[in-house]
Structures are given as C-alpha cells and as structure tokens.
C-alpha cells in the first residue's frame, strides 16, 4: 500500500487544529455558563430586593467580581486561540519556544484538568529564539503534552523544561510513568523528520532534541 505522508500529515495537523478549537469552544461555553448563572443570580437577588427582602450589596459586588474574572479568563483564552490560529499564516518563523509551550499549555488546560493532571513550563535560564515551522512545533508539543499527561505518574504533574546550546534545543516532559507504552506514530516520525528532531524516553521523561541553529533567521 502506498501511503501519502503529505496527506497524512495534513490530516493529522487538521485533527490537531480541530482538537484545540473544540477544547477551547468547550471552555468558552463553560465560561458563558458561569456568567449566565451569575447574571441570573443577580437578577434573582434584584427581584427579591424588589419584593422587600433586604438587599445584600456585598453579595452583588462579589457576583460582579466573579463575572469580571470569567470575562478576563475568556479574553485570555480567546487571545491564545487567536495566536494559535495565526500560526498557520507563515510556514516558518522565529519564535520563543517557552512562549509556544505556555501557549500549548493554556490551550490544552481543559483536557489536562479532565484527567486531573497539571503541568508547568519552567522558565528557561535565558531567552531562546528558534527559526522553525512553528505550527508543526506546536502540534508536536501538544501531542507530547497530552501523551505525558495520559501517562503521568502518581504525582499527576508534568514539568516541562527547556535547555539549549549553540546548535541544539532540548525539551523535557518530566513526571511520566515509564512503564506505559512508547510514544510513536508514523505522523510523529514525519513531524520529527521535518523539524530535524528526535525523541527519546528516559526514566520518567520524554525528551525532545531539536538540531537547530539558534541563530538561523528568516534572512538565512
């Protein structure tokens, strides 16, 4: 059987795009639900006050604060989705991997919460910039994060660390139970090939190594 890897990769990329947008849609729907309930509660309290019940002003203020907080959270989620959507504008770009990892974390916080796993990106020792196919990079990071979360050890916390030297970028997802199955698929292999990266699994860790020239830029 002839397998068209370009087609497979496009389909897998679209699947990832769909997964992220569906996740965000679900998150926003929940936020709207919370705003809806709090607005309804304010209306209930208003109607009760009209009927002569003592008005609880502190409670009204606290509800307003909750609504504002949800609006702020939604704004952050929408900003992340917008940044994610624009990752398809250019094929390659100079990016900060730490910022992209935090973007992935923000976009996928709901599926992680669903399995009661938390994750954190440790700040890099110094700012790192790489010139890369950033959508594929995001997809790979997203797949790694979801795999790591699915196979998290008893602490249920994935720590993502970044390190780099002149020519290489390393990203580690720690807190993984090593007894579970290996993380591999044809499309992952294809993405690794395109990004000139390799993946290994060590004791409790998924390690990615990108063979990049950090000083590579759009002009090169």
């Amino acid at each position: 059987m002839i397998v068209n890897t370009d087609w497979n990769l496009s389909t897998e990329s679209l699947k990832f795009f769909g997964k992220v947008t569906a996740t965000v849609a679900h998150e926003l729907n929940n936020t709207i639900g919370i705003i809806n309930e709090n607005a309804g509660l304010m209306e209930d309290l208003g109607l009760m006050a009209k009927q002569g019940h003592p008005a609880d002003i502190d409670k009204w203020i606290s509800i307003c604060k909750k609504i504002s907080e949800q609006v702020k959270n939604s704004h952050e989620t929408i900003s992340s989705l917008n940044r994610f959507a624009h990752c398809t504008d250019e094929e390659k770009k100079t990016v900060n991997p730490e910022i992209l990892l935090n973007l992935v974390l923000n976009l996928l916080k709901r599926p992680l919460a669903q399995i009661e796993v938390s994750a954190e990106v440790l700040p890099a020792e110094e700012p790192i910039e790489i010139y890369i196919r950033h959508f594929l990079f995001l997809k790979l990071m997203g797949e790694c994060l979801l795999y790591a979360a699915d196979n998290a050890d008893q602490n249920k916390k994935i720590i993502i660390s970044i390190n780099s030297d002149a020519k290489r970028l390393g990203i580690k997802f720690s807190g993984v139970n090593k007894t579970k199955s290996n993380f591999h698929s044809n499309t992952i292999e294809e993405v690794l090939k395109i990004l000139d990266a390799k993946i290994t699994q060590e004791e409790g860790k998924i390690c990615l190594l990108f063979f990049l020239d950090k000083h590579d830029s759009e002009n090169n």
Binding site: N30, G33, I34, E37, N38, G40, L41, D44, M48, K66, Q70, A113
Partner: peptide
C-alpha cells in the same frame, strides 16, 4: 465539575 457554575445554579434553585 464546574464548581462555580453548579453552586450558583443550586443557590438559584433554592430561591
């Protein structure tokens, strides 16, 4: 699992 949503709905039902 959304505590904020469910607790508020419960309060409104109790009214």
């Amino acid at each position: 699992d959304e505590k904020e949503l469910i607790s508020t709905l419960a309060e409104r039902l109790s009214f």
